[in-house]
Nucleic acid binder design. Structure first.
Lengths: 190, 190
DNA sequence: ACCTGAACACCGTTCAAGT
DNA sequence: ACCTGAACACCGTTCAAGT
């Protein structure tokens, strides 16, 4: 009952930007499969009531959609003009993988919240599909293979025989695997 | 206050088997990214107090581990003897993908609960690694690619341009993609 | 327009108490 | 050994009430 009931005098409220920034921080701080972010914990961190968040985002799924739109915003942006299809696919996937790897808990949260899938991610898959159509007779097959691999390779699933919390492969390892896949997709006998 | 306080007279309690079976049912019924299963909902469905479950499973992560052990139990079982490496890898992955596809919500729940990863799944990855060592100079790379693809292809992520809840590709589609990958891994120029 | 408290229907898990 | 109710510290979201 510290704070008054109605609207505060000055701009003591939250911004949409502040919400998104703090939400991403909460997500990045946790290691619990996307469970680190909750509306209540987020409001708490912002020094605000949970309900005030609903004036800036639609709901929890909407919050995740907004987050993914900002995190993946640069994937398709300013791609060098006149690139060969092969190189453009490579560039997009390297950027996408880097974004997944930077915020793996966001990707896991989206996995757990089907309604959060939309926006930029759809544009990325569409762009990849278009490019792959000129490169292989099975564009949808390879688009799925490449995206699945970018996800799996960017997410912290314990899979190696070493430490249970082994970090995902770094960018260099991803590039190596990606080139492996792209050269398989490209010209090959049979 | 209907039921008496102490231990019931007869075997009105729950079995570990009943717990696992009902848990899998709850998971399969839901479409919410592995959120359909909770200790409380499970106890409710079994007509029992939430706390009674803790006498049969360690906790929520332990429940998921037990579930994955039963769901993936048959993946390595009774593999035909004298199979070529190539064929054995193919058989294991087809079975693994089928299990993921049968209970996608379990896989999503495990993704969201890192502590749930263990047991049979580790045996499967180890077996695959061993086989791939005789097939390629990059066994770990290809093991990850193949498992990531089995996951992605078995999970209901909205990714296609069609219906948002489009079903994952069926077994035939997976086999086609898998053969695509395996022939890329196999002998190829350069 | 924006924030509030109270409420509803949920969570996982601990703990002492029963038989 | 196994189940219980009560409790603690959480969830997302609705709703009427404030300014």
């Amino acid at each position: 009952m510290r704070r008054p009931r109605g609207r505060p005098a000055q701009g003591t409220g939250v911004t949409r930007d502040a919400i998104l920034t703090t939400a991403l921080t909460l997500l990045d701080e946790s290691e619990s499969g996307g469970k680190g972010l909750s509306m209540r914990a987020l409001a708490n961190r912002l020094g605000v009531t949970p309900m005030s968040l609903y004036h800036h985002v639609e709901d929890y799924a909407g919050l995740l959609r907004a987050l993914s739109d900002t995190v993946y915003a640069d994937v398709l942006k300013d791609i060098e003009a006149g690139l060969a299809c092969h190189e453009e696919v490579r560039e997009i996937l390297i950027r996408y993988h880097a974004a997944v790897r930077r915020h793996p808990q966001l990707t896991l949260a989206i996995f757990a919240t089907p309604a959060a899938f939309a926006g930029v991610t759809r544009e990325i898959t569409d762009r990849l599909t278009g490019l792959l159509q000129t490169m292989t007779t099975e564009p949808l097959l390879w688009r799925d293979i490449l995206i699945d691999h970018a996800h799996g390779s960017g997410l912290p699933v314990a899979r190696d025989d070493d430490a249970p919390a082994a970090p995902p492969p770094d960018d260099h390892d991803y590039r190596r695997a990606l080139d492996c896949l792209l050269s398989a997709l490209g010209p090959r006998r049979q």
